[in-house]
Amino acid sequence: MASIDAALLDFQRLDRLAAGTSALHRLDPRAKVLVVLVFLVSVISFGRYQVSALVPFFVFPAALIGLADLPAGYLARKVALLCPFALVVGVFNPLLDTDIQLYLGPVAISGGWLSFASILVRTLLTVSAALILLATTGFPAICRALEQLGMPKVFAVQLLFLYRYLFVLAEEGGRAARARELRSFGTKGQGVSSYSSLIATLLLKTWLRAERIHMAMLARGFTGAFQIRQNYRFGRAELLYLCGWSALFILLRLTNPAELLGSLVTGLFS
């Protein structure tokens, strides 16, 4: 279970990063959430064979990492962790789609390879943007921002609780798994069936804990609505941040600077 514990610790580091004090950290979370949304929509809305047009979008994560002074290596490892999923999604494309789309000098590139590359690039972009948002804003603030932007309160509360008790649940699960492991003496123990009862116990424990938490909330005057303190203001800096990035993304979406640059260079030489 050491791996789960380690993963948790690593996750908590992301949380501590969010406590930073850079100008980016201090922006109203709503602005940051909206910019990431525009970014995601722009990146995802490209055609399936687009690769070159996506590359300029890397300016966004790169700029934010610089501005907020985030550890790039750490974030890269986190992004790399999710890459296998993208690989699985795209791995059959080169086999299924063999139409030639493009010639790189003498090398013919099929549509499958292009779409595969496109999926990878998009994953890198979207996952890094989400992680950076988390590392500069923090999960609770993101939830609050989403709520202020119109997400139903119930979902916001659910997300907050999920995040708060993820750590507790993982610890509890880790302990139960360790107890099982220690009593199965290096063999498979009772096999899969012991896991099913383990998960059932975990569910029941969660249930009981939920009841106790509810009790603690009632004891402190909870009446069904979360009162939330406000300490952010959507000011000029936020407006500038939102409009600036959004304009850039839309520009990058509508034109293809990489291609423009390419044709400019080849035009010069021809």
């Binding site: 923090g138 999960f139 609770p140 907050l160 609780f161 995040y163 708060r164 507790v168 804990r209 106790r212 938490i213 009790m215 603690a216 909330m217």
Partner: peptide
Amino acid sequence: DPDDQLFMPT
């Protein structure tokens, strides 16, 4: 169990 009592993010 203080984990039951402390349920908010900070």
